[in-house]
Design a protein around this nucleic acid. Structure first.
Length: 723
DNA sequence: CCAGTGTGTCATAAG
DNA sequence: GCCTTATGACACACT
């Protein structure tokens, strides 16, 4: 991390100097003399710009601590972890855990206001206000940058994005982060009223030439650096240096831009896992730096800038992009970074495209290059075909798909319903199953109501009272003792009574006072479902109907049929107590009960079987209820994870938007930088003839007619201002 | 008649 | 070793 942070630090220092120099070149005396913001904010910002994920919280709750190996929760745990992993794998999102706080540390609304109100190349990323303000500020910034461009850089499409969840605190935090960044950049640009010489001295003091350890790049980078070191006074370089002292600074600034861009892309890298690295399989993508440079090169100038009316930096940088662009980062970083330009590729040359893409529900257009509908592209594309087009487009697909997914799951207005649909389709489970009328969960609430009836004697109590306390059992047993011989007349009523109706439980003092055993939410009484089934069967077979028609009490055979087999057996064996007692009495009391009565072996065996089966029946009901509960919990977990996934995708979109805005500012500054370059005769360089190349030794003004191979050679026009 | 569901029961393992 | 609980498997009734 120190290694990475060093890159951040160095790059950001360069960024600071870069912006300062731009302020000098543009003579932005009107800039606010804001105090230089602490660099650690910039350093921490990109690396901490992502909202802290809540996965760790999920882990805390799901890591299985305290789950008994036999517990059904263990299944829940594993299933939930699996689902969580699946959800994680659905996206490449890897959200570092500390980013957001750093972004939220400093916010200076005044600075933001000033940044947006100031003209000039202030990198006003403020979107804390209305998005229209953002657009206005963007446009004003562009125009104020000395560019007469009519390109508005309209981001009106962000309205839709911003409107996704305007009340979202997270988004607010991100906006604040943008405010901070805006402030930082504005301050950086504003605090520089230094002269060019001062800036150069500052640069030299900060980065003694050839002493930048972060530039220990391999391959073309080192070659280029070495070559430039060895030939600082090549003919071209001398000529330009002698005449263009001011242009040197911007050239170097562009190299700083490159650093910044790399940092930003590294920020993207944090969002995306290395899985996307495999997308850099394009043959043109020799190394990550090529793609990285392609990002820079993808900046398209506004149609009417001060210097470049026809040529865009996009094409200008192409010759060096494919192979020769040195990288400031190590290959492994670059390999990941290289994919990022697709995510944040700017397309400012056509505001309508941006508008359309943002306004549309399809976000893919956001990162797709605009069609060749701008004159800049039309005039130069044939000359300088973009070698990264295919690469970018290919690598874009992944992000596009992700973004589409984000739109579907994170931004859709029907998100809730959609998530529900997905849940239903994915889980393959139905919550309805748990609401079955016959499910124990429902019956549990009325398990005792079966033993009571509004039309039934209050003293009646049939077996199936589960979990009754010993106190209530006494009364219940008393009633049951009599019920064994006398409950038959009431039985049909009991059978017809809906055991799901808890209201029937009220008003029965004996049953209201019973203490229920709520283990597993109080299973259905043992004979309850049987009774219900038997009642249904009896009714279904027309017996109830017959009884109602005949106004007769239920016949004995129906009653017997309603009774469970064990009940019938108990009656057949003349068992002197109820099955309820047999089943639910504690073992001591049960043994006492058996001791009180002189029972033969058959009776004792039957009683023990009744007890065993009765307990097992309740256990089975509990077990099934737990299964249902587990399924419900899993479904809820899936819903939660889907919500979290949508939230994370939305977060990702927000950060992409922020990065895109920042890159847009970078683009404008690059344009300004190029516009400020003057040759020995004081004329601006034509973008059709020159382009800016970023290298470890600074920004180089390269002639376009130079081949890619030549760009690596030390003979290239060295516009690097001496550090 | 068949499939799905709910329930009871048995066997078994584990506490 | 007994009792209780949990659970898979099976059968049966019912829709």
């Amino acid at each position: 991390m120190l290694y990475l942070k060093k890159y951040f630090t160095e790059g950001l220092i360069q960024f600071t100097i870069l912006l300062s120099l731009i302020g000098v070149r543009l003579d932005l005396d009107t800039y606010l003399n804001n105090q230089l913001p602490p660099l650690h904010e910039i350093i921490l910002g990109p690396s901490s710009a992502y909202t802290q994920t809540q996965f760790h919280n999920l882990r805390n709750t799901l890591d299985g601590y305290g789950i008994h190996p036999k517990s059904v929760d263990l299944d829940h745990f594993f299933a939930t972890r699996r689902l969580l992993n699946q959800v994680r794998s659905l996206d490449h999102l890897r959200v570092p855990s500390t980013e957001l706080s750093a972004w939220l540390v400093h916010r200076d609304p005044e600075t933001v206001v000033s940044a947006t109100s100031q003209s000039g190349p202030s990198i006003a990323l403020d979107n804390g206000g209305s998005l229209e303000d953002v657009n206005n500020s963007d446009a004003s910034a562009m125009r104020g940058a000395g560019s007469a461009s009519e390109t508005t850089y309209s981001l009106s499409g962000e309205d839709s994005l911003g409107a996704v969840a305007p009340e979202d605190s997270q988004e607010q935090g991100e906006r604040e982060s943008s405010d901070d960044l805006s402030k930082e950049l504005t301050s950086l640009g504003a605090q520089t009223s230094l002269s060019m010489q001062e800036c150069l001295r500052l640069l030299e003091a900060t980065f003694p030439f050839g002493e930048e350890p972060e530039f220990q790049a391999t391959g073309p980078t080192s070659q280029l650096r070495d070559s430039t070191e060895e030939t600082p006074t090549t003919s071209q370089g001398i000529a330009l240096q002698a005449t263009l002292s001011q242009s040197d600074t911007p050239l170097d600034l562009e190299q700083q831009w490159q650093d910044i861009m790399s940092i930003m892309e590294l920020q993207d890298m944090e969002v995306n896992t290395a899985e996307n690295v495999t997308m850099n399989d394009d043959p043109n993508n020799n190394n990550a730096s090529t793609t990285e440079s392609a990002t820079i090169g993808s900046f398209e100038l506004p149609q009417s800038t001060l210097i470049n009316q026809d040529v865009s930096l996009h094409q200008a940088s192409l010759p060096s992009c494919s192979q020769d662009f040195p990288t400031l980062f190590n290959p492994e970083l670059d390999s990941t970074v290289g994919q990022q330009p697709t995510l944040v590729r700017l397309s400012s040359s056509n505001s309508s495209n941006i508008n359309s893409t943002f306004g549309a529900t399809n976000l893919t257009g956001l990162f797709l290059p605009p069609p060749l509908n701008s004159t800049t592209n039309l005039t130069t594309t044939p000359v300088l075909p973009d070698p990264f087009s295919s690469l970018l487009e290919e690598s874009m697909l992944d992000e596009i798909s992700l973004l589409d997914l984000a739109m579907e799951e994170g931004f859709s207005q029907d998100q809730a319903s959609q998530l529900k649909d997905e849940l239903d389709s994915d889980s393959g489970l139905s919550l309805d199953s748990s609401h079955s009328p016959a499910s124990p969960s429902n019956s549990e609430t009325s398990c005792s109501s079966a033993a009571s009836s509004s039309s039934t004697s209050a003293t009646f109590s049939e077996e199936g009272a589960v979990g009754y306390s010993t106190d209530s059992e006494a009364a219940a047993a008393e009633a049951e003792e009599g019920a064994v011989g006398g409950y038959q007349p009431e039985y049909s009523k009991l059978c017809r009574m809906s055991y799901q109706d808890p209201s029937q439980f009220h008003g029965i003092p004996q049953l209201e006072n019973v203490n229920h055993n709520h283990t597993y939410n109080l299973p259905l009484p043992s004979s309850y479902s049987e009774r219900s089934q038997l009642s249904a069967s009896c009714s279904k077979k027309g017996r109830d109907k017959q009884m109602q028609q005949t106004k007769l009490q239920p016949p004995q055979d129906c009653m017997d049929r309603q009774s469970s087999r064990d009940e019938r057996r108990a009656r057949a064996m003349d068992i002197p107590f109820s099955n309820d007692k047999i089943i639910n009495l504690p073992v001591e009391e049960f043994n006492e009960l058996l001791a009180k009565h002189h029972l033969n072996e058959d009776q004792l065996a039957l009683i023990r079987d009744i007890r065993r089966r009765g307990k097992n029946k309740m256990a089975a009901q509990n077990c099934r209820k737990r299964k249902l509960d587990t399924i419900m919990k899993l479904e809820q977990g899936v819903q939660d994870l889907q919500r979290e996934k949508a939230h994370l995708l939305k977060e990702k979109m927000e950060y992409c938007k922020c990065i895109r805005q920042t890159k847009q500012k970078v683009q404008s500054l690059s344009q300004e930088l190029f516009a400020q370059l003057r040759d020995e005769e004081g004329r601006p360089y034509s973008a059709s003839e020159y382009f800016l190349q970023y290298g470890p030794d600074g920004v180089l003004l390269m002639p376009r007619n130079m081949s890619t191979e030549q760009s690596n050679k030390p003979e290239k026009k060295q516009k690097d201002k001496k550090k």
